[in-house]
Write a protein that binds this DNA or RNA. Structure first.
Lengths: 166, 166
DNA sequence: GTCCATGCAAACCTTTTGCACTATA
DNA sequence: TATAGTGCAAAAGGTTTGCATGGAC
C-alpha cells in the first residue's frame, strides 16, 4: 500500500485550519482530506469521488470541490492543471515540499523532481524586473523512460521549415 | 502602434503550412492569423473576436477555435493557460523564440523573460530520469514592480504555522 | 438555537460538434 | 465540381451556485 506514512497529522492540521477560520469540522471534510493525504498521486475530482465511494463514503461533487478549495486555501494541498481539461490535486508537506513535474506525453505519467536552479531564476527576475515571486510552476513535457523504451516518438506536425522567417 | 514588424511573412508561412496540409486558405483563416500575429499580447478568444470585429470581420467563435488549433499545430502560435479559466494565444517566431512568463497576481500583467537555466534542468532530467524533454512551461506568479510600488501585498491565508508537521 | 455544510439539480463558461450552406482549389 | 470551411445553435465537460434540508458547535 502507498500509505506508509500516517495521514493523521495532516488531518489534524486541516482541522486546526478549519477551527482557525471558524468553520465546522465535518465528516465529509475529514473524509475528503484523508483520501487526498493518503494518496501519493495527483488525483482528479473523479478519482477522489471514486476513492471515497470505495471507502463507503457517498459525497457529492459539490462538497468535494468546496472542500478542495479549503484544502488549497490552507496550503495543505496544491492544485495542478496539466492541460487535461480538468484539475488535479496533490497534498503538500509530505515529501519534497517544493518540486517540479515531468509529464509524459505518451502515457500521462507524472514524475516529480527538484530544480534548484529556479531559486536563481526567481532572484534574477526580482533584480531585473522588480518582480516579487510568490510561487512558480515548472512543467517539462516529453517522453518517460518506459515509453521511450517502448519505441514511442514525438510527432512533429509543424511547418517543414519554420525557421526561415526573418 | 504595436505593429512595428510586418505580419506578412507570418501570414505567408501560415499559408504555406495550410498548403502543405492540403487545406484551403480562406479569408477567415488569414484574418484570424493577422490579428494574432499583429498583437504582442497574449490574446484570449474573446479578445481575438473583438479585434476581428473592430477590423470589420464578423467571424464565428467556432471558426476562431478551429483556426487557432491549426495555428498551434503549425507551431506558429503557442497556447497558454494562466489559470484564468480560459486559454490565451501568443504568436511565436517574433522576438525571443523561447521565453518564460511572469504573471502578476494583482493586475494580471504578463511579462516575458528568458531563463537559460532551464536547459541545464532539461539535460539533467534526461540523465537522471531517462526523460526526453519536448517542451516546458515555467511560470512565476507574484507581484510586478508597479503593483508593489502601489502597495499591493500577497495575502497569506494558509495555516498560521504550517511547518510543524513531522 | 444559530450558523454553516451538504446534496441535488440547475446554471455557468469555455470549448467542441453536428449540420445545412458556402467557398476554395 | 469535389472537397473542405463556415456559421449557427446545440452539446459537452468541468466547475460553480441556489436552495431546501440537515449537522456542527
Amino acid at each position: 500500500m502507498t500509505e506508509t506514512v500516517s495521514v493523521r497529522p495532516f488531518i489534524r492540521l486541516f482541522g486546526r485550519y478549519l477551527r482557525e477560520q471558524g468553520l465546522p469540522v465535518t465528516h465529509q471534510r475529514e473524509a475528503i482530506a484523508e483520501v487526498v493525504f493518503a494518496s501519493e498521486e495527483h488525483l482528479s475530482v473523479d478519482e477522489i469521488e471514486q476513492r471515497l465511494r470505495d471507502r463507503g463514503d457517498r459525497i457529492g461533487k459539490a462538497t468535494i470541490y468546496r472542500t478542495l478549495d479549503l484544502l488549497v486555501r490552507s496550503r495543505l494541498v496544491e492544485e495542478h492543471d496539466f492541460g487535461e481539461g480538468f484539475k488535479r490535486y496533490e497534498h503538500r508537506l509530505s515529501r519534497q515540499p517544493v518540486h517540479e513535474h515531468l509529464i509524459c506525453l505518451e502515457c500521462g505519467k507524472v514524475i516529480e523532481f527538484q530544480a534548484g536552479e529556479i531559486a536563481a531564476v526567481e532572484a534574477r527576475v526580482q533584480v531585473v524586473h522588480g518582480f516579487l515571486p510568490a510561487r512558480h510552476r515548472l512543467e517539462v513535457y516529453g517522453l518517460c523512460r518506459e515509453c521511450r523504451a517502448a519505441g514511442a516518438e514525438l510527432p512533429y506536425q509543424g511547418l517543414t521549415c519554420p525557421i526561415d522567417t526573418v
